[in-house]
Simulated scan of single mutants.
Amino acid sequence: MPANTFIYHRAADLADAQKVIQQQSQSTNVLLTQPRVPAPYPVATGLQLDLRNLNLNFIRSKSGLIEIGTSTTLQALADAPLLKRGNNGIVATAALHCTHYGLRNLACAGGAAIAGDGPPDLQLAWLILDAQIHWDNGTVSTIGAHAPAGASFPIQISYTDTVTSAALHAVRRTPRDEAIVAVAAALQTQANQVTHARIAISGVGNTPARCTAAEMALAGNALTAANIESAAAAAAATSGSRSDYRGSSAYRHAMASVLTQRALDALASNNHS
């Protein structure tokens, strides 16, 4: 077979999608556009699987969960009233920052959730909300984890619909550019005591990841300036040595600390208002 030929198949339903994948001896590319278009754009080969008939375009609240279908566009996430209301609107804001308007109408939630590279905003937001990816074979994984054995494509992303204060801060070359370093934070407090803390960082390591050391500096403690500074110091020590023309490793670690401080200061201010 010539290298530039491919097979296109629009699956009728989930069973059809799984069947055609199992029958193919060639590589399979499930058409879930990611927030960054690779350059140069790869030539299509093997099976190109279209999921648009599977009705996976939805944003809903169900049984205490927010559920987002894998085919839901990033623009739909940015516009969704349900996502704007919850968690300080962090998922809607993250979708807005992920990429430019034209690509937001093509890129989808599933593509953003499993992207190994590219704009980190949505993965950060979902990490601090403890979101899970539900796969076609019924398995579940966390954001950033490898696909479970036997899984071919994500069906939906879900997270608990709880009242959580959240913030996303980033440093970019321009306001619409991809983040060099970004930090997302989420807190739940009671009587100024932190009962739940999540902090996730991108731009220091190869992929967005939670910073458990920073979380531990806050969880179970009072939301004070000293404890926020301790969390920021822990963020500066997060593992990773990423370095390129946009920022050295030392710069990225320093900005992780600065952005963690900013995010937590913003949440503390909201908590006291």
Score class of each variant (00 low, 15 high):
Ala131Phe: 07
Gln132Tyr: 08
Gln132Lys: 11
Gln132Leu: 06
Gln132Trp: 03
Gln132Phe: 04
His134Ala: 09
His134Val: 05
His134Tyr: 06
His134Glu: 10
Trp135Asn: 00
Trp135His: 02
Trp135Thr: 06
Trp135Asp: 02
Asp136Gln: 06
Asp136Lys: 03
Asn137Glu: 06
Asn137Thr: 10
Asn137Ile: 14
Gly138Asp: 07
Thr139Asn: 11
Thr139Arg: 14
Thr139Ser: 04
Val140Asp: 01
Val140Thr: 14
Ser141Asp: 13
Ser141Gly: 14
Ser141Ala: 12
Thr142Phe: 07
Thr142Ile: 01
Thr142Met: 15
Thr142Tyr: 10
Ile143Ser: 06
Ile143Trp: 03
Ile143Gln: 02
Ile143Asp: 05
Gly144Lys: 10
Gly144Trp: 09
Ala145Asp: 15
Ala145Lys: 08
His146Ser: 15
Ala147Pro: 15
Ala147Gly: 14
Ala147His: 12
Ala147Asn: 13
Ala147Ile: 00
Pro148Phe: 11
Pro148Ile: 10
Pro148Asn: 08
Pro148Thr: 07
Ala149Arg: 01
Ala149Met: 13
Ala149Cys: 14
Ala149Glu: 12
Ala151Gly: 03
Ala151His: 09
Ala151Asn: 06
Ser152Leu: 10
Phe153Asp: 14
Phe153Thr: 15
Phe153Tyr: 15
Phe153Leu: 08
Phe153His: 12
Pro154Cys: 13
Pro154Asp: 12
Pro154Phe: 02
Ile155Glu: 00
Gln156Val: 07
Ile157Ser: 06
Tyr159Pro: 03
Tyr159Cys: 07
Tyr159Gln: 04
Thr160Phe: 09
Asp161Leu: 04
Thr162Val: 11
Thr162Pro: 01
Thr164Cys: 02
Thr164His: 07
Thr164Asn: 00
Ser165Asp: 10
Ser165Gly: 12
Ser165Pro: 03
Ser165Trp: 01
Ser165Thr: 04
Ser165Gln: 13
Ala166Trp: 02
Ala166Thr: 11
Ala166Tyr: 00
Ala166Phe: 02
Ala166Arg: 04
Ala167Lys: 09
Ala167Asn: 10
Ala167Ile: 01
